[in-house]
Design a protein around this nucleic acid. Sequence first.
DNA 1: ACTTATTTTAAACACTTGTTTAATTATTGA
DNA 2: TCAATAATTAAACAAGTGTTTAAAATAAGT
Lengths: 207, 207
Amino acid sequence: MKNDLSTEEKIKDAARKVFMTKGFSGCTTREIAKSVGINVALLNYYFRSKGKLFELILEAALTDLIDGMVEVFHQDMTLEDKTRLIIDKEFEFLKKYPEFPLFIHAGLNQESDTEMDLSSFLGRLHTTGIFEQCEKAQAAGKMRKVNMINVTLLFMSNCHFPIMSKKLISGIYQISEEEHENLLIAHQEIVKEMLINYLFPNTNQHA
Amino acid sequence: MKNDLSTEEKIKDAARKVFMTKGFSGCTTREIAKSVGINVALLNYYFRSKGKLFELILEAALTDLIDGMVEVFHQDMTLEDKTRLIIDKEFEFLKKYPEFPLFIHAGLNQESDTEMDLSSFLGRLHTTGIFEQCEKAQAAGKMRKVNMINVTLLFMSNCHFPIMSKKLISGIYQISEEEHENLLIAHQEIVKEMLINYLFPNTNQHA
DNA sequence: ACTTATTTTAAACACTTGTTTAATTATTGA
DNA sequence: TCAATAATTAAACAAGTGTTTAAAATAAGT
């Protein structure tokens, strides 16, 4: 257990890629091992089982998800600017890793046994002071009085779903890969304006 | 091949239930057969293979999805009323079948080989005249000029995602089943007001 | 009744699955 | 250098997979 992370990290990278695109039960340990160029046994030498490896990947993905929010929330900005920034960052990130949202949700639904603990994330969000900032804005009448969980839901719905619904949308409307990309670019602006208009109704004059 | 649909239909019902909760590769043909009380061979006697059965279920689910929209679009109502109605109907339906959205998206992503044809649905939507109604409203300045695909995305994002993200949201915010239900009830109204305010900005005085 | 067709089953097949065991190769530490 | 530890592999294991075959039970047709 020296710092020869090379192989261990390579396995995690490959596992992430395979798990994201195919899901837990949609792939095999041999498939992951092969894509690293190693034996199946070695995979179980580093991580104890397929399930344990999956949990690791899923947990890392969830951490990344929260990290992105925390980073923005922690900055010194108005809520409107934070809104814009977080939507832009989320779209940018998700365009790079389109399988991410579906992986997380399917992953959380898959493991009925292990019931991953997500409680730690709430604390991290609290430390950013975002909740207080919203409370203040709401008290001052600058922000619509909406439960913070609903706010979270609004953001995630409008950022994550457009990415994960690519096959459905482009299938129904018969549009090409390129057209879908343009669709997302337009949608990003729509979402920004809609959410800002809704959450901060006072300052709704858009030049 | 008489009209003794009993067994065939029972298999489809069971398959739908199992596929929805566990996904294609997350379940076995024996599991489905067992839940019907029949042999595995009989399942392949009616449907040729696991994959063929899955396609059937997925296609039926997609048809249901479009059917719901078509039914509302076809009615004689203002766009605002259609908006309200479709959101209410969608939330009502999805609360009954919470696995539905995740199943569809995961299902569409699973089968890279068969590439299900979704083109027929566009025609069905066109026959409702909803696109013309929107065009007219947009020309009259009553509706915001937004591409119809973006409109679709807005609706689906804000209806489907809140349901499919149950585990993630209630995990992060540490809320109970009951609290999550109340969250959804509140969210339904939020989504209605937000979308109407955004799409029909003129009539945004809410009593 | 009895022949034919349909529905259902038990058993087997060939293959894949996650995991383990024991042996081999590389790396380290003194 | 050489023993001890770590990394890696080939092979096997037992269980589970989708699918098929051939036989049995049931229903239908005449």
